[in-house]
């Protein structure tokens, strides 16, 4: 009986050690991506990740002499997984906010496309006040754990807020009308428009000028304590920003220069 017990523990140990080999090494940079957030990072049918951040990561890896390995992670657990060492950095369209800075460090921002509301049926608002009025009594979809979710929860009092685990699930419901509008990074709506021309952006593009909750741009998340990695990444980003390659990359994926100086 005890023998069977030990045997099973050994089998479990072996199976987990096989998984264990993915620990941090100096040649590989493990990048955590959401893989459901076009055009920042999405997945194609062969299972590969593609997107702005994927290309950016590959360029960065080349410059710091490491091989990039992309690890998909649901948005909800993207920070805890970094803290659990599932990967070394987060590049998942994660906005730099004060709240998040308490848990992890960020590099300087590399892009910012602002936050907006996309909808099939809502009329366009030109200011935040108009937006608030138009959203009364409507159903707004947000993604859990995003700055939009936090802002919506804080500011919208007469709107039904539905929090989805992934942006795609939000899109599914937006397209079939079960929610009237969705709020997230502007690039999400522009990407959605490519397949569905009826989607319109019905709000002004919101940034930290409208509410500090909207953060200071998208950056790379790094675990606290890894100062060397952080400075390496910052150096590369500064280089790319100076020589224009960051702007070119952003224009390629977003249609305009969404990069940060």
């Amino acid at each position: 009986m005890k023998k069977i017990g030990f045997l099973t523990i050994i089998i479990i140990a072996i199976l987990t050690i096989i998984q264990f080999n993915k620990k941090s090494s100096d040649e590989v940079l493990r990048v955590g991506v959401e893989g459901a957030y076009i055009p920042w990072g999405g997945i194609d049918p062969s299972g590969n990740v593609i997107g702005f951040e994927v290309e950016l990561a590959n360029i960065i890896c080349e410059k710091i002499n490491r091989k990039c390995k992309f690890i998909k992670q649901d948005w909800d657990g993207i920070i805890p997984a970094l803290l659990n060492n599932k990967y070394d950095v987060i590049m998942a369209g994660i906005t730099i906010t004060e709240e998040r800075k308490k848990k992890i460090n960020f590099t300087r921002g590399y892009a910012d496309t602002g936050v907006a509301v996309g909808s099939l049926s809502l009329e366009k608002s030109n200011s935040v006040e108009e937006l608030l009025k138009k959203l009364e009594g409507k159903k707004l979809g947000v993604q859990t754990g995003t700055i939009s979710a936090k802002w919506a929860d804080k500011t919208l009092k007469n709107t039904i807020i539905r929090s989805y685990g992934t942006q795609e699930e939000l899109n599914i419901d937006l397209l079939n009308g079960r929610i009237d509008a969705g709020m997230n990074d502007t690039s999400v709506w522009t990407a959605l428009q490519k397949g569905n021309e009826d989607i319109k952006i019905v709000s002004p593009i919101l940034t930290s000028k409208d509410d500090p909750l909207f953060g200071e741009g998208i950056g790379i998340g790094v675990k606290k304590g890894r100062t060397e990695l952080l400075s390496e990444l910052n150096r590369v980003l500064d280089e790319m920003s100076a020589d224009g390659s960051l702007s070119d990359l952003a224009t390629k994926w977003f249609g305009y220069d969404a990069s940060l100086r």
Partner: peptide, 25 residues
């Protein structure tokens, strides 16, 4: 998970990275 493991490990004097593969969790 990370908190628990790191705290347990620091009791034993280990401060580096401890990997918690998702399969194990």
């Amino acid at each position: 998970g990370e908190n628990i493991i790191t705290q347990i490990a620091s009791v034993f004097g280990y401060d580096g990275f401890i990997n918690l593969p998702p399969f194990l969790i």
